[in-house]
Design a protein around this nucleic acid. Structure first.
Length: 287
DNA sequence: ATAGAGACCTGTGTGC
DNA sequence: TGCACACAGGTCTCTA
């Protein structure tokens, strides 16, 4: 479900509420998420304090006391919900998929809900979590200075796949997903069907297209984070509020709508399927 | 080595 | 109303 901006928003929201708290118990209702939870999951967490929450790509990294790290990924449908005492969030509308309940000293609790169970969690040592295969192959974050045209160009020259697929590959840039790839390519005026290697000039220099693409990726991710991510369907943030970026979609889920680049462009947004997933783009101004 | 298809799950919306 | 099918924000694994 969530891409980088949603996970970043969730990370900030949860961090604000939970940092410093001690886990008093963990109730495991279903241990069979995408992967089974590790042995003694609840026991190993009980008594630890949440020191700090961070994010890498679409992963949440929970830095706990005694040098333990909880890594969680929300998959397509995972969400966290904070309950404070007996507030309204205490009566979820979907209790059947509340798989984990974390209780904190002081009365607060955190519920993990995930209908499709594509999400997963694991416990790793603080010293070596970043060496895990989930993290070792990841590309740079689009939020920092590491992502540049000079980084991306040589990588693209070796790829024969459509640029859409290459951008979804987490080894290229970490954290992009189906929504923001479509949005970034529209902003960069690049067709999602274009073979990645053809974005790069024949002299191997990044050229205008790669530069435009890098700028578009960085900007769309920054805009989405600033809007608190996107809420589709009944998806909410940890406090029950909604992200707002879905109101700023240019092409995603807008097949048949006029290209927002009007009046210069008279195209119509189109939906195509690439490697089994929907892509939205304007065939007129994206080349 | 790389690219594409299939698999993993459940819910929702559409059309007959 | 019931049923079948397509589709959903991700990633891993298997096959060419």
């Amino acid at each position: 479900m969530p891409e980088l901006p949603e996970v970043e928003t969730i990370c900030r929201g949860l961090g604000q509420e939970l940092e410093g708290l001690e886990i008093s118990s963990v109730e495991v209702r279903r241990p069979d998420l995408r992967f089974p939870l590790p042995e003694s999951f609840a026991e190993r967490l009980t008594g630890r304090r949440i020191r700090h929450l961070s994010r890498r790509a679409k992963y949440l990294i929970w830095h706990l006391s005694s040098d333990l790290v909880l890594v969680s990924h929300l998959g397509m449908s995972g969400s966290f919900r904070i309950r404070v005492g007996a507030d309204i969030q205490a009566s979820p509308k979907d209790p059947a998929h509340d798989h984990l309940v974390f209780q904190f000293r002081g009365g607060r609790s955190l519920v993990y809900n995930d209908p499709r169970r594509f999400g997963f969690m694991d416990l790793l040592p603080a010293a070596s979590w970043a060496d895990h295969v989930w993290f070792s192959g990841l590309g740079p974050e689009p939020t920092g200075n590491e992502l540049s045209a000079e980084y991306l160009a040589p990588l693209l020259t070796r790829r024969r796949s459509p640029i859409k697929a290459v951008l979804l590959d987490q080894r290229t840039i970490a954290g992009l997903g189906n929504i923001y790839v479509s949005e970034a390519l529209w902003r960069a005026r690049i067709s999602p069907r274009r073979t990645a290697a053809t974005l790069v000039g024949s002299d191997g220099h990044p050229g205008v297209r790669v530069t435009r693409l890098v700028d578009a990726v960085r900007k769309v991710i920054a805009d989405a984070i600033a809007a608190g991510g996107s809420s589709i369907g009944d998806y909410t943030l940890a406090d029950g509020s909604l992200g707002r970026f879905q109101h700023q979609f240019s092409v995603y889920d807008r097949a048949g709508a006029p290209c927002p680049r009007s009046p210069q462009c008279h195209g119509t947004v189109r939906r195509i399927v690439q490697s089994g997933r929907s892509t939205y783009y304007c065939p007129v101004c994206q080349r």
